[in-house]
Simulated assay, not measured.
Amino acid sequence: MATTSNPVKIGLVGLGKIAVDQHIPAIRNNPALELVAGCSPQTRPDGLPGYDDMQAMLAAHPEIAALAICTPPQVRHRLAMEALAAGRHVFLEKPPAATLGEAESLRARAAEKGVTLLASWHSRFAPAVSAARAWVAARKISNISVMWKENVRQWHPGQKWIFAPGGMGVFDPGINGLSILTRIVPDAVIVKKADLHFPANCDAPIEVQMDLQTESGVPVRAEFNFLQENQQTWSIVVEAEDGGKLALHLGGTELEIDGRQVLKEPEHEYPGLYAHFHQLIASGQSDADFAPLRIVADAFMVGKRIAAPDYIE
């Protein structure tokens, strides 16, 4: 087991905004982990050796035991398969892959090689999610709504991959809400209907409305929008048959019960994720739950395509 005197050595694959803002600080602040190097064809990490690609990084640093793959999803499968084949533990930024088939093959390869695979859903580590899960478990639920609406120009400026095939469009942030939903409800969530709004110049939706249902019959309404300006909305509201009402806001950093705020904490998802990754490696386990990705895949399968105005950056 790795300790502070023998930390797990990690390499970063992909050095975009999420890697710089979240992964690098979380790794550096965990004494059981050591960030060794990073690779990207365009960028170099501050204060670390940088390489053009993963193979060059691994050749220069064979001591790297684990890789965090933070690339766009379209190329993640190939890189993760190479990492697993090389016997490295793998942390996948969300979504874990561009398709369910890719995700399942990664899970099988990790099991075959006896290494850890983490399909990371960072929103599940938001401070209010555990309390929400306990509240839901103690009640009979009547309905749920998921509202994830944000400004793509603010959060993904110039990132053309997000509207390319496999980029998922508004599902890229929306899957965060689905990851919380599938964490706090005890049974599977099934897509019944989906309206997918595609700009003519995009290959992924910019707005989505979905009707879903849990296996126990609870209706769920989900609405995602990538053009929300001013206040951003990342909320889940759960109503119980006894009249109780729970609301998660700002991605799970705030919790209201029956209209009263009972929790408000700063976002600290990635430190929790990396602590979880370290524990998985130490125990020889994986955490590869693809339920949120399955919901997105099902929405594309049953969804109705609706024309939307062209997207202008």
Rank of each mutant, 00 (worst) to 15 (best):
A137P: 00
T99Y: 10
H278F: 00
Q228D: 12
I257N: 06
R107C: 01
R28K: 15
I27S: 08
A66M: 11
Q154V: 13
F224Y: 14
R153Y: 07
R107M: 01
A111Q: 14
A37R: 02
S105W: 00
I190S: 09
F125H: 00
A80G: 15
V218T: 13
P205S: 12
S5C: 02
D287P: 05
I312C: 07
K140E: 15
L196E: 02
K149E: 13
W135M: 07
E229R: 10
Q209L: 10
G47K: 04
N6F: 00
E34H: 11
K245F: 05
V220W: 04
I180H: 08
E215I: 00
K304Q: 12
L48F: 04
G259F: 03
I144P: 09
V75S: 14
G303R: 02
W234L: 13
F300R: 09
I27F: 07
A194K: 04
I236T: 11
L255I: 03
G16E: 05
W155L: 12
A60I: 10
A307E: 14
I141V: 15
L178M: 14
L178E: 04
E254D: 15
P271F: 07
D52K: 12
T182H: 08
A108K: 14
P157K: 13
Y51F: 15
I144S: 07
G252C: 11
P165C: 08
A37C: 03
G50I: 01
Y51M: 05
F163R: 08
V129G: 05
L273H: 08
K304I: 12
G16H: 06
P62N: 15
Q231E: 15
T4D: 14
R124N: 07
V20N: 07
L250N: 13
D287H: 12
G169F: 05
Q279L: 12
K9R: 15
T253C: 12
A128I: 04
I236F: 02
Y311C: 00
R28T: 10
L273E: 13
L48P: 03
T3S: 15
E241R: 13
R183N: 13
T253Y: 06
F224S: 06
H249W: 10
A188H: 14
Q22K: 13
P41V: 08
V220E: 11
L263P: 08
R107F: 01
Q209I: 05
L15F: 05
P173E: 06
M57S: 02
P199G: 09
L84D: 10
N176D: 14
Y311H: 12
A68G: 14
V20R: 13
E104C: 00
Q154A: 11
W135E: 09
P96I: 09
D172M: 12
R221D: 05
P309W: 07
A282S: 15
K113T: 11
N151V: 04
S286T: 12
S179V: 06
E93F: 09
K140I: 08
V262A: 06
R153Q: 13
